[in-house]
């Protein structure tokens, strides 16, 4: 396997922005073009595992679309209806996946380069890092609830919904408050309030491939907009 391209996070962000708006108002053919371009872009950037899934969704759409016009069965029609929406978003999801795979540190450096206030950078970095952790916290709480017989889908769950509501939310709230306290302490004792403009250990620079990607993106946008 070849090594993924090394792109500036700003380029990746630009791709997301442009593709995100291009998907509106595109015909199916244009969406297909967008999809293949972003699929190639994703492939070069190391998105490999989820590509087959996206292709499958695309196939699902075409299949259900075909069966819908052949059989006029309501099942296929609604399948086509919903998969069509997902297909519309596929190019954007691909561009997003490339961006998400960027290490948080590099993303931060892009924000730093744009002179965003420190609090915003910290907020962004914290929420980004915390999304997977929040999932783990919720899972752990549900496991304890199961053990103590107050899980969502248990007898108590049906009989005493308020109890379950309370048992699910209170530990989560307490955890969240505690984590915010600890994280704040950690931030403050590491100079997060210093009134100095942040720098970044990652030096981000535009390279040849960045310019190439941007150029191609511009051409694509031009072509698509002209054809409308």
């Amino acid at each position: 396997m070849s090594k993924p391209l090394i792109l500036d996070p700003r380029t990746k962000l630009g791709v997301v922005l442009v593709i995100g708006f291009l998907i509106f108002g595109s015909t199916v053919t244009q969406l297909l073009l967008l999809f293949s371009v972003t699929a190639l872009y994703g492939f070069l950037n190391g998105v490999r595992r989820s590509l087959p899934i996206y292709v499958l969704i695309l196939l699902l759409y075409f299949l259900s679309d075909y069966f819908a016009s052949e059989t006029r069965n309501i099942l296929f029609v609604s399948l086509a209806f919903f998969s069509y929406f997902i297909v519309c978003f596929l190019p954007a999801l691909l561009a997003g996946e490339v961006l998400v795979r960027t290490p948080a540190g590099q993303l931060m450096s892009a924000l730093t380069a744009w002179h965003l206030p420190k609090t915003i950078i910290v907020a962004f970095s914290v929420s980004l890092r915390f999304v997977p952790i929040a999932g783990m916290e919720i899972r752990s709480i549900h496991e304890v609830m199961k053990q103590r017989g107050v899980a969502f889908f248990s007898r108590t769950g049906w009989l005493h919904p308020w109890r379950v509501f309370e048992c699910a939310l209170v530990p989560l709230m307490i955890r969240l408050l505690k984590i915010s306290d600890e994280l704040t302490a950690s931030a403050i004792t590491r100079g997060a309030e210093a009134p100095i403009r942040r720098t970044s250990v990652h030096e981000i620079k535009f390279h040849f491939c960045d310019y190439a990607v941007i150029l191609l993106l511009l051409i694509l946008t031009f072509v698509l907009l002209v054809r409308r």
Partner: peptide, 17 residues
């Protein structure tokens, strides 16, 4: 302040999740 920002960020992540 930092404390508020961190709190908001963490709750946002949980709500998002």
């Amino acid at each position: 302040g930092i404390r508020d920002v961190v709190t908001i960020a963490i709750f946002t992540a949980a709500i998002m999740m």
